[in-house]
């Protein structure tokens, strides 16, 4: 077997370092896999996953309420799906997106349904 799926790599970074780190991944030839948001204490945590030769690498940023994230669609265009999804469900704003659906990616009955109540969600 070439690798083991049970090995987990998580790295925590600051929101300001995100785009630089993502560009590093891009030059090293990593593939963007997914973006996942979840509610944590004092904000929303966003996980970015990258893969190279079946080795998975995750970076984590914590977004505090009102804070914006820089879009990574400049480096990885396919990220637009996840960024729009995260925007619609968790209400995180992404700046400089290459393909912004303007909150119309999902047809939802109320805005930001998955944002926890402490952070201003319903």
């Amino acid at each position: 077997m070439r690798c083991n799926y049970r090995v987990q790599n998580f790295e925590e970074i600051e929101t300001g370092d995100l785009i630089g780190r993502v560009r590093e991944f891009k030059t090293e030839g990593y593939r963007m896999c997914q973006i996942c948001a979840s509610n944590v204490e004092g904000g929303t945590e966003v996980l970015y996953s990258f893969d190279k030769d079946l080795e998975l690498f995750n970076i984590r940023v914590t977004v505090r309420p009102g804070e914006k994230l820089e879009s990574i669609t400049g480096a990885y265009w396919p990220a637009f799906i996840y960024e729009n999804e995260t925007h619609d469900l968790f209400g995180i704003e992404f700046t400089d997106s290459r393909l912004d659906y303007g909150g119309k990616f999902f047809r939802l009955s109320k805005p930001t349904p998955w944002l926890s109540k402490d952070e201003g969600g319903e």
């Binding site: 077997m1 070439r2 690798c3 083991n4 799926y5 049970r6 030839g29 593939r31 963007m32 896999c33 079946l54 990885y76 265009w77 396919p78």
Partner: peptide
């Protein structure tokens, strides 16, 4: 590669990428 294709779509374009080799 640029568009991060997965599965048979990526393999048909010549990328040798199959998660069945990840040890599970």
């Amino acid at each position: 590669r640029d568009l991060c294709a997965v599965g048979p779509v990526a393999r048909a374009s010549g990328i040798n990428q199959d998660l069945r080799l990840n040890g599970m």
